[in-house]
């Protein structure tokens, strides 16, 4: 068996890739996908830990995270669709009407 730390490090790297993606991309859909990447990093860490401790609770929590991810993706896409209809643009830098 490989050490569990390797998997956790992999999850960290994936999380950071997702974070950098949100930071550097202007396309709202890609930003949303990067967020999915970050969520998946969290899931990976949970699954690895669950297996490491032989505890099933972690896997159940992962199920809940998936539910939330599904809900979040649908709502996020709905918002993007509406915003696109309004601005005909999915550039995050253009969405600034809530800024002071």
């Amino acid at each position: 068996m490989i050490p569990v730390d390797w998997i956790l490090l992999l999850a960290t790297v994936l999380f950071c890739i997702g974070g950098i993606g949100v930071a550097i991309r202007r396309n709202a859909i890609v930003a949303l996908m990067s967020i999915e990447l970050m969520l998946n990093a969290g899931i990976l860490a949970l699954v690895a830990s669950a297996a490491h401790h032989g505890d099933l609770n972690g896997q159940v929590v992962v199920l809940f995270i998936m539910m939330i991810a599904a809900a979040e993706a649908s709502v996020g896409l709905a918002i993007i669709t509406t915003a696109f209809r309004k601005h005909s643009e999915v550039d995050l830098d253009q969405y600034s009407s809530l800024k002071w």
Partner: peptide
């Protein structure tokens, strides 16, 4: 995983 993750954030087209 890492390569495809980089692919997600670095591809020009969605």
């Amino acid at each position: 995983i890492i390569l495809s993750g980089l692919g997600v954030i670095l591809s020009k087209r969605p």
